[in-house]
Computed example of a mutant assay.
Amino acid sequence: MFTEAQLYSPVTTGVDGDVTVHLSDQHPGVHDPEYRARRNAIAALALDYRPGAPVPPIDYTDEEQEVWRIVSVELARKRERYACAEVIEAADRLGLPSDHIPQLDEVATKLVPLTGFRYVPAAGLVPLREFFGSFADRTFHSTQYIRHHSAPLYTPEPDAIHEILGHANQLASPRFAALYETVGAAVARLETEQALKFLADVFWFSLEFGVLREHGEVRCYGAGLLSSYGEIEEFRDADLRPLDIHAMGTIDYDITHYQPVLYCAESIGEIEDVVGGFFETMTDETVARMVGVKPA
Rank of each mutant, 00 (worst) to 15 (best):
Y263L: 11
T115W: 02
E234G: 12
G133K: 06
H246A: 15
A53E: 15
F2D: 11
A44Q: 12
S150K: 13
G184W: 09
D252Q: 15
E64T: 11
H22R: 14
T13W: 03
E181H: 11
G249Q: 00
T143A: 13
A185F: 12
D32W: 09
A178V: 02
Q103H: 08
W68A: 04
F117P: 00
Q65A: 12
E233A: 13
S228K: 01
G292N: 11
Q144Y: 05
A168G: 10
V87P: 03
R189E: 01
A91I: 04
M1P: 14
A160W: 06
E130I: 13
V287S: 10
R50T: 08
R77N: 13
S9A: 15
Y180W: 12
W204E: 10
P10T: 03
D99G: 07
I164P: 04
A46Y: 02
D237Q: 15
H100I: 01
L243A: 08
A85L: 10
T281W: 12
A238E: 07
L207Y: 07
V67G: 05
R50P: 04
R93N: 11
V87E: 04
H22Q: 06
F132S: 00
C220G: 05
D159N: 07
I251W: 11
A172F: 06
V107C: 05
H149A: 15
E80I: 08
D273F: 11
E231D: 15
